[in-house]
Design a protein around this nucleic acid. Structure first.
Length: 483
DNA sequence: CTATGGCACGGATT
DNA sequence: AATCCGTGCCATAG
């Protein structure tokens, strides 16, 4: 009897720990990754079955396992002022659904996102190169692409690469040139000006490039950066308005950091193509597409059908020969474990998203400026779960906002987003370029107290040039006399 | 002398 | 325990 009890608690303890481990790993994964796991498990485990989701009898909408029909239950929920959150089955997802503006935010660039992005970038470029490359060139290209910094500029000296492969420098250079003409135009240039030159060359074959652009980009970039218009006018004969056209064109079409999405708020087409197709893990909608009616959130289930333990399989276990029983037991255990853990995962994410969306509603509706500071620890506290649970639930998950933007869940936790947003605003509205210390003053007027050095960092993060290089918007009063 | 970027330290967060 | 973030100090450029 004792022994019986002992073994019983022992096995249940084991399943409990297995359960925990499984839940944690599932929680760590995003919807797409779980989808993979489920698919492989389905293919090896006969104890699992799938079943179509129920549909709402009233509206015919597909329902998740614990979902209340969002459309039909709207009224009650809205009255309660609580954000409507529900589970909903994964579905075919295309970026047309997502709207045109898919934005991978730039503030989280430092962490995994950019690394993933760079990997994609490498592969993306290599794909383009593959057709007209011999194996050696391909390898060199690969090496070059692995040595890009986060802006898409080459950080390793060419001769080093040449030595690494024991090949002539000329070869490395020719490969580099090939790379530069690939899609994020000017990628793998050694510096910005080189990248710009390449971009101009490419654009000239594609569209009409205003006069003087090529000349100025090639020879007078420094002068332009230093606002040394006299030198340019004198040497090239370009009038002041020509130069303005050139600058406008550059802001519109060129990008000094090929891997960086924006310069002067222009996204390169490359970024959109780079966007990997990923199903969001949660989707925020306006109810009836009307912002005034409130928002509802769909938490996406990681599989298109419901996953169950096969009841027939359970029943058949009674009649199975003892030789095979053990295997069947195992399968059954694993199956019910997976089902339970999936449920737990869904519930955990559901609760998290509910809280996040509720707390950061102004951010979702009105924009980055309204993001309230939030830490994972605080969320764990209010939800009564361990911090690491929140960490796992947040990591590698993405959410689609009503606007169509897709953001990582971690964005809800970026402490300084609103400051940076205000900073951006101030700079956009500035009459003439403000120095970092002036910006400190303006920010503290609005209740943001940050050090001068920090402003500089935020500027960089937002890709804003230092004051003395910023373009003045109103170029009427500064006409040089030599026109 | 002013404006800005690099480095590195300490405290908070994960 | 590892990582991130704000900040101060210092070097550099103009």
């Amino acid at each position: 009897m004792f022994q019986g009890n002992y073994t019983l608690t022992n096995t249940s303890h084991q399943t409990v720990t297995a359960h925990l481990a499984q839940t944690m790993t599932l929680l760590n994964m995003n919807t797409e990754e779980v989808l993979q796991t489920i698919e492989t498990e389905l293919s090896v485990n006969p104890a699992l079955e799938t079943e179509d989701f129920r549909r709402c009898p009233a509206c015919g909408r597909q329902l998740g396992p614990v979902e209340v029909c969002p459309v039909c239950s709207q009224a009650a929920k809205i009255a309660g002022e609580e954000t409507l959150v529900f589970l909903s089955p994964m579905r075919e997802f295309s970026y047309e659904n997502a709207g045109s503006s898919i934005i991978v935010d730039d503030d989280e660039i430092t962490t995994e996102e950019i690394q993933a992005g760079e990997l994609d970038l490498t592969q993306y470029v290599l794909q383009q190169l593959a057709p007209d490359c011999n194996p050696l060139e391909y390898e060199i290209a690969e090496h070059i692409l692995c040595n890009l910094d986060e802006r898409g500029l080459l950080s390793a000296p060419l001769d080093e690469i040449g030595r690494y492969f024991h090949v002539d420098l000329d070869l490395v250079e020719s490969v580099k040139t090939k790379v530069q003409f690939c899609d994020p135009a000017g990628i793998a240039s050694e510096n910005s000006s080189e990248a710009l030159k390449i971009q101009v060359q490419i654009l000239q074959t594609l569209m009409d490039v205003p006069d003087f652009v090529a000349v100025i980009v090639n020879d007078y970039l420094d002068a332009l950066l230093h606002r040394d218009f006299e030198e340019i006018t004198a040497d090239t004969g370009a009038s002041y308005s020509d130069i303005c056209d050139v600058m406008a064109f550059m802001a519109e079409n060129l990008n000094p950091y090929p891997a960086n999405a924006k310069w002067g708020n222009v996204r390169t087409p490359a970024k959109d193509q780079l966007q990997t197709y990923q199903h969001p893990d949660a989707i925020v909608h306006y109810i009836n597409n009307d912002p005034k009616q409130g928002i509802m959130v769909e938490v996406v289930l990681p599989y298109v059908r419901q996953i169950n333990v096969n009841k027939l399989f359970k029943e058949a276990m009674d009649t199975v020969p003892t030789a095979r029983l053990e295997k069947w037991e195992q399968d059954y255990q694993k199956a019910s474990l997976l089902v339970k853990c999936l449920q737990q995962r869904s519930v955990a994410i559901l609760r998290l998203v509910q809280y996040l969306v509720d707390y950061q509603k102004p951010f979702i509706i009105e924009g980055e400026k309204f993001l309230k500071p939030l830490t994972r620890a605080a969320v764990a506290e209010t939800l009564g779960v361990h911090e690491s649970t929140i960490s796992r639930a947040v990591s590698s998950k993405i959410m689609q906002l009503p606007s169509g933007q897709i953001i990582p869940l971690s964005k809800f936790f970026t402490r300084n987003l609103s400051v940076r947003c205000v900073l951006k605003e101030i700079i956009e509205e500035e009459e003439k370029p403000l120095s970092d210390s002036k910006l400190v003053g303006l920010l503290s007027e609005r209740g943001y107290n940050v050090a001068r050095r920090t402003v500089a960092k935020y500027r960089m993060m937002e890709g804003i040039l230092p004051a003395h290089l910023r373009r003045r918007i109103n170029h009427d009063s500064t006409l040089p006399r030599s026109v």
